[in-house]
Amino acid sequence: MTYAIETQGLTRRFGRFTAVDSVSLTVPEGTVMGLLGPNGAGKTTLIRMLLGALAPTAGTGRVLGHDLRTGAEAIRQRVGYMSQRFSLYRDLTVAENLAFFGRVYGLRGDELARRQEELLAWAGLLDQRRTIAGDLGGGMRQRLAFACAILHRPSLLLLDEATSGVDPMSRRRFWDLIYGLADGGTTVLVTTHYMDEAAHCDRLAMMNAGRLVAVGTPRELQAAHGDGGGLEQVFVKLARVSAEA
């Protein structure tokens, strides 16, 4: 099996604080991996290291076959990233945002125009192309940010709480888009606080206090740590156990 993400003892310290503590994680290609954990567990720091935006203090990692330390540029060209802040330019229109990110990723001319149309249709934003991004509703803005993140057809998608703050309808629509990409062979690593979303992932990784505390399918985690409850019970238990440890 080939892995989109492989880390060995990946660690990041900020001064005396260890944000990510020796995380060894593998994510097979074409799967949807859910990364769970309480706030401050180190999920975002881990993702930033996987993006090559933050250098690891210790440990090694490969993303899409490239070393984290030396292959950051190659990684970025093939990775899509979206955070809960939906980092768009609020004073640009929908089309202008897409065009900007498309150009940053090296798309141009006809290809850019074609891809732009494709994604406008895909995200259901064809009628909003001239709307200022700041005027869009939460769900639309989220889909626009998503479209900007996948414009360059990334092989790996890193979604950091990308579904926070939108209504259930928009969330469901968003997940439909994610599954569509996964079916097409894209690997997805997604952090979320919604257990219904977690239940739909192929595999889950649970982090707490910088450590990876459990990895498995939702069913496996439920069996091992659920005490008869759902995933929420797993989350609460694992968060508490490591907090006490």
């Binding site: 970025r76 955070s83 980092s87 330019y89 990110f101 940053v104």
Partner: peptide, 14 residues
């Protein structure tokens, strides 16, 4: 401030 820098640094922009 707007968080777009976060997005820019993970693009291929050096």
């Amino acid at each position: 401030e707007l968080g777009t820098m976060e997005q820019l640094v993970v693009t291929p922009l050096r």
